[in-house]
Design a protein around this nucleic acid. Structure first.
Lengths: 248, 248
DNA sequence: ACCGTCCTCTTGTTATGACAGGTCATGGCA
DNA sequence: TGCCATGACCTGTCATAACAAGAGGACGGT
């Protein structure tokens, strides 16, 4: 296991030990030596394998954790995260929350809420059985009175049923966390540009041929169970999502 | 300065020391006690003020760094990051880097590099003067042999001139950091959907009316000077950018 | 058979100590 | 006057050593 580390302080310094260890572990994860949800060697095993102290191991693991490649549970161990997940982002806010934070007036209007048989893509995303029902929530988001986006969310039945009769003009995520006591975990997002379909055009008041920014978002609870699959369609012309990133 | 810390190990444990320290420092930053670009007390001063060891201070600072509230420079100190910074994201990778890390084969082809008078939007973004020249770099990115995106980057003259004659088929950011010794700081991104223009269609081999995902990215160096303004146009149909986000 | 206790393994937190290496001002030398 | 060496100060890296606390299995008693 130990491979070849070049000790920076004793020799001349090529790279810090913890970076070398981090890179070796990352390579093994990406190459599949350690598979998703598999337990990594414990910290003391890694100490022995690399011949370094615990502080150095933990620094490497901390970096991998920040990159989203691993996560750890006290008393159990450190594990490889699910997806390829090369990139990690903190603080996912609902788009509404994000907009509000920028000083815009954000609101939403409920178009429909209904129980229906889950479409195929939803079955796969939420890991349901073939004929399972889901609850579909359709809403239009406004930004300063203008229709900005069409959101269609699919919830598993046990969660979705509790949404009937509730006030769905705000963000749903805080309700899940506070009212339903569902701690939210990670989410995957796919973003693409597409032409608007008739349904979207109607709600967003678009002309045929106008493009939309389509976002698919799958949100999990902290234990990794998928709890919400959404299609968000934003007007291509008015949507500018601005956020801050720090490199390295 | 020291305020009231509750020591977890000696008493009963309310919260780890480093979290308490982190929260106190964050509050002071957000309340303006420490202003942007101001130097925080040094680690040893904080050690004395809070009465804890250096490891604890560094753990608090590390968290604040991850949240984007502070940054540090070896030999100089730790400083408060710029602004509202509502949202922090780590590890901005070039899209190419991100794709490569996911196991795809990414490459780029240089279309043109030229010096010209800065377009108005570029003047504003890079904070230039009216008639200033910039260097424009146009490239097409490929993913597994297929044209994926058209990238047009604008650099201030002093940086851009050094790009002539260099190998621009890879990522430019690492060159800025390593060859030019320009430490990269934060970047802002805007994402929108748009219809492809003729120029983009030619390079990406698209049909008229096909939408593209347009990204504007403005990158700064660590001192906050804008050093690169880019327009990235991705094919709407093939581009699915998948990443992982952690809420809270 | 069931349940609770204890032991062991694991990660989380904290202290102390040391040296590496970058930054910068000061002061001495040419 | 100008340049460079020196030292003070600061963050970066790494080691050693504890104890806290969660998880889970072994073991023993009921």
């Amino acid at each position: 296991m130990s491979k070849t580390l070049t000790r920076p302080l004793s020799n001349r310094s090529p790279q810090p030990l913890y970076l070398q260890i981090k890179d070796q572990l990352r390579r093994r994860i990406l190459e599949g030596d350690y598979r998703p949800h598999e337990k990594l060697p414990s910290e003391s095993e890694l100490m022995g394998a690399f011949g370094v102290s615990r502080i150095t191991i933990r620094q490497a693991l901390r970096d991998l954790h920040n990159e989203g490649l691993v996560f750890s549970a006290q008393g159990k161990g450190t594990f490889v995260s699910k997806p390829k997940a090369v990139q990690s982002v903190e603080h996912l806010q609902g788009f509404g929350e994000a907009m509000a934070a920028q000083g815009y007036e954000a609101s939403a209007r409920l178009i429909s809420i209904q129980q229906l048989k889950a479409p195929k893509a939803v079955v796969a995303a939420l890991r349901l059985g073939g004929g399972d029902d889901v609850v579909e929530v359709t809403r239009v988001r406004f930004l300063n009175r203008e229709a900005l986006s069409l959101e269609r969310s699919y919830f598993p039945l046990d969660i979705g049923r509790r949404l009937f009769g509730m006030d769905l003009s705000g963000d749903i995520f805080p309700m899940l966390e506070n009212l339903f006591a569902i701690p939210l975990g990670e989410a995957s997002i796919r973003i693409e540009a597409a032409l608007s379909d008739q349904d979207t055009r109607t709600h967003l008041n678009l002309q045929p041929g106008e493009p939309v920014l389509r976002v698919e978002r799958l949100t999990h609870d902290r234990r990794g169970r998928p709890i919400d699959f959404e299609y968000l369609s934003f007007r291509g012309d008015s949507f500018k999502y601005h956020f801050r990133v720090d490199r390295k």
